[in-house]
């Protein structure tokens, strides 16, 4: 399955506004999208509650995965959001 590895650089980690922006973008994708910390079980990238519970802090790496038509573009967009300050 196509994936992107990206380091979260925002001060607040993948919480608050970055998390909301991320989930909003993921929710627009037609296919399932997953996000995980390396080596851990992935969670639904369209779920703000699961992403909050993932508790991604600043400087932590995440893996984002999606499969299907347009998956590459979706992953590029999500990786850029997760990697933005």
């Amino acid at each position: 399955m196509p994936e992107r590895k990206v380091t979260v650089v925002a001060d607040v980690g993948l919480h608050a506004r970055p998390a909301a922006t991320f989930v909003r973008a993921a929710a627009k994708a037609p296919m399932d999208v997953w996000i995980a910390k390396p080596g851990r079980d992935p969670v639904n990238a369209k779920s703000i509650l699961q992403i909050l519970a993932l508790d991604v802090q600043q400087d932590e790496m995440v893996v984002i995965k999606a499969e299907g038509d347009g998956a590459e573009a979706v992953l590029d967009e999500l990786a850029s959001i997760a990697g933005s300050p």
Binding site: A16, R17, A19, A20, V23, R24, N44, K46, S47, I48, L49, Q50
Partner: peptide
């Protein structure tokens, strides 16, 4: 506004 938008996302959370 940020707080409220995050709350709106919670209300429509697919896992929920």
């Amino acid at each position: 506004a940020n707080i409220l938008r995050a709350q709106a996302l919670m209300a429509t959370d697919p896992g929920l």
